[in-house]
Write a protein that binds this DNA or RNA. Structure first.
Lengths: 160, 160
DNA sequence: CGCGATTGAGTTGTGCACAACTGAATCGTG
DNA sequence: CACGATTCAGTTGTGCACAACTCAATCGCG
């Protein structure tokens, strides 16, 4: 049987070139399609993700957004500042905990949700996949991400 | 039956949040694992991809690398300059076509291939997937990327 | 041959991702 | 209460992705 241990290194260098490369390419392809679909809203794809969680939760601290999107403050702070400059969110120091900053959509930001309503459907149609395929792929990717996020760095050096 | 047209918008806003978000998250998780695995080689993941195609082809014009990695000169030029500064590749204007720049691994760059030999296997082990799963996932992602890359921007505005 | 169109690499500017850090607020334990 | 540890947001610096552009070399058609 063909397993991880019976394939020659040379083949692996190619396979490898393909698995995560495919992931990389698919992500970038998605970005391209979103860039196009979001152009009229004046949002980038990561900004759109941030607005999605804010539309769903109403208001969140920066940390809460970061947990949901798995992004740290180094990425979020400037991103949220741009959303604030665009007039879509407002940021306020939390009164209960002065370390925390609460982010919430402005009226304009909330209105944007309506304009964004049909974006997902258009994207889904562009993938050419049906709901079951999308769901299946999503589950595999989530499992993969969880697994990769929990890899102990040391294990990368002792290949079993 | 449940299809793209029978699911309410609200559900879609969540599903959407999940499919491409999952892809995004998986890509970043992979990047993290590669970052760790490539640290000792002094390469970033995109630099590693560039070295992979150069190891395979010996030498290529910038354009050739770009076609294989689907990256344009705006991304590759600085990346290759950094690889040159690191001593891993050399760039030379092609004599036959002075517009073209030929990139090839230096001796040091070629030697790096040996040090990189077991990276793919370690990454594959970290995914926890077997060969068949990897292959299947890769095929789906490739098909998805091809489909997304060929989307006509206008189709994004008329949902079917 | 000559000249406009195309091609290839590079530059500039914007935005994201992340590591490493700062500084202030808060927490927890003695 | 006090003080060291932790938490949170933000900043800085590096690198990637991509759009829009420049400029030189080459192509191809009249």
């Amino acid at each position: 049987m063909e397993t991880l241990d019976t394939v020659p290194d040379e083949d692996f260098l190619r396979l490898d070139h393909q698995i995560c490369f495919s992931l990389h390419a698919a992500t970038r392809a998605f970005n391209g399609v979103y860039r196009e679909a979001l152009k009229e809203l004046g949002l980038t794809y990561p900004q759109y993700l941030a607005m999605l969680v804010l539309w769903e939760h109403g208001e969140l601290p920066v940390k809460g957004i970061g947990e949901r999107l798995r992004l740290d403050s180094g990425t979020l702070s400037p991103l949220l500042k741009r959303l604030e400059a665009a007039g879509y969110v407002e940021r306020r120091r939390s009164p209960e905990d002065e370390r925390s900053v609460t982010v919430r959509p402005t009226a304009e930001g909330a209105a944007l949700k309506e304009k964004a309503r049909d974006v997902p459907r258009r994207i889904a149609a562009a993938t050419g996949l049906d709901l079951a395929d999308i769901r299946d792929l999503r589950e595999r990717l989530d499992a993969l991400a969880v697994r990769l996020d929990s890899v102990d760095p040391d294990d990368l050096y002792v290949c079993r």
